[in-house]
């Protein structure tokens, strides 16, 4: 799973969100590191919808603009959980190895 996809699913895991809210949430989650652009966001949303990982929650018109809210489906929840597990395992391995390096390096010069 690519990072934008993972982040979009994570944004929708909290509550149903519309497109711009997803962008804002992803930006907040990553401390401003990832600012999804419309093309990337809708490529991910369209694919996730076709794959059945998200679905349309509701539609609203705010200031004559269409806002479509998306929510995570059961399949989306499982997919996000599986990806989270995978990332956690990898992070744990990396962490263990980094910790193992520390005594041998002992505050090595940069």
């Amino acid at each position: 799973m690519r990072e934008p996809t993972f982040l979009v699913l994570t944004a929708l895991a909290e509550e149903p969100r519309h497109g711009y809210a997803v962008i804002e949430d992803v930006s907040a989650m990553t401390g401003g590191r990832v600012r999804l652009r419309a093309g990337t966001l809708y490529a991910a949303l369209d694919r996730l919808r076709v794959e059945g990982l998200i679905e349309v929650d509701r539609e609203e018109v705010v200031q004559s603009r269409l806002r479509r809210y998306y929510r995570l489906t059961g399949a989306g929840e499982r997919s996000l959980a599986a990806e989270t597990d995978r990332l956690r395992t990898q992070a744990a391995i990396a962490e263990r190895r980094l910790r193992a390096r520390r005594p041998e390096i002992g505050g090595a010069p940069a």
């Binding site: 711009y20 962008i23 419309a38 966001l41 809708y42 603009r65 269409l66």
Partner: peptide
């Protein structure tokens, strides 16, 4: 929808 996102941004 995309237009809305683009204009919001």
């Amino acid at each position: 929808e995309m237009l809305g996102v683009l204009m919001s941004g």
